[in-house]
């Protein structure tokens, strides 16, 4: 699963990771998988899943397209968190 990381604009307070190929996530499955792996689900809907890990990591928005929005401007922290999310995301894909 290949992603590229972008900062949407210079004054954005977030990083976005987007899949390089079109995928679709099963949002209900996604919620279950992240819950089972100890993440706090802050909000769940068919358009976004908002999760939180620990105080060390920022909140992350997960979209059905596979896009991830990290609420942080710290590239290092975001990259570390991204690596920990990737294996779980693989299991959420319903269309690739």
């Amino acid at each position: 699963m290949m992603y590229h990381m972008v900062k949407p604009c210079s004054d954005s307070g977030a990083f976005i990771a987007e899949p390089m190929h079109k995928i679709k996530l099963d949002m209900s499955l996604c919620e279950q998988i992240f819950k089972d792996n100890g993440y706090t689900i802050k909000f769940s809907s068919k358009v976004i899943l908002l999760i939180e890990d620990t105080i060390e990591y920022p909140e992350v928005g997960i979209y059905p397209s596979g896009k991830l929005l990290f609420k942080s401007t710290d590239h290092e922290v975001v990259s570390r968190m991204f690596e920990s999310l990737k294996p779980l995301l693989k299991n959420c894909i319903c269309v690739s």
Partner: peptide, 13 residues
């Protein structure tokens, strides 16, 4: 106004 912040995460495509 241009200080870093997260824009609304719910804006649809």
């Amino acid at each position: 106004s241009i200080q870093p912040a997260v824009c609304c995460m719910l804006t649809p495509k």
